[in-house]
């Protein structure tokens, strides 16, 4: 049973909370129910005490994202051809180009969305995974808050991909000028998608589980 008298959780009372509709369902033991064996009586969703295999899945996705982040930044994201001249630009070269041309608001937007946000997101996930695995019970509230922040900002990294799509659509004037998406766009797009899946597979309740057993 729970060692701390003041903290009564779904787990300590052996109640499974439906992630889709919030209905509580009693279960025989507070330790994991086999995946998909119990379903919510209101909405039919599969019930779990915690997300299935949360830490392993998040680790796998995070490591994949970190590996793909390297080609995403080294390979060109766009290939511009103008009058027979082809120019490749990586994300960082794009940022530098705008800084040199005095377009610093655009440089700041692209730097934040394409470089800062993915790095921040991967660093935060790494910190959350390690702190949960080491069984830390410190600063649970702060860790939950930063988790909510990365859940919210992850999607904004897609800006640069959308900019490429729009430019590809616009600048298709044959021999005069054309813009094509580079290999880097593929890897970058994969990084954004995979980090979104990684933060979705991390169960924030794991942060708090340790606080209860420590009392």
């Amino acid at each position: 049973m729970n060692t701390s008298l003041s903290v009564i959780t779904g787990r300590s009372e052996a109640l499974l909370s439906c992630h889709a509709c919030g209905l509580l369902t009693p279960c025989s033991s507070p330790d994991d129910v086999p995946a998909g064996h119990e379903r919510c009586s209101r909405c039919g969703s599969a019930l779990h005490m915690r997300y299935t295999d949360s830490l392993n899945r998040t680790w796998a996705l995070l490591i994949t994202a970190v590996i793909l982040y390297i080609p995403a930044n080294l390979l060109p994201i766009t290939q511009t051809s103008s009058l027979g001249l082809t120019q490749d630009k990586t994300i960082m070269q794009g940022v530098i180009y705008f800084l040199q041309h005095g377009e610093w608001p655009i440089a700041v937007v692209i730097f934040t969305a394409s470089i800062l946000v993915p790095l921040l997101k991967m660093a935060v996930l790494l910190y959350l995974l390690i702190s949960v695995q080491r069984g830390s019970s410190k600063r649970a509230l702060e860790r939950t808050k930063i988790y909510r922040i990365i859940e919210f900002i992850g999607r904004w990294s897609m800006i640069d991909i959308f900019v490429v799509v729009i430019m590809v659509a616009l600048v298709q004037l044959g021999t005069l000028a054309s813009i094509a998406a580079g290999e880097g766009a593929l890897y970058f797009c994969a990084v954004v998608i995979i980090t979104m899946f990684a933060s979705a597979s991390f169960d924030p309740r794991l942060i708090w589980d340790r606080c209860e057993t420590d009392g």
Partner: peptide
Amino acid sequence: AWNMVEVFMIGIVVAAVKLHT
């Protein structure tokens, strides 16, 4: 979470500024 219409709008603004020259 996979509806990114608002992110796309910012993309339009950035692309417009990029190409206006």
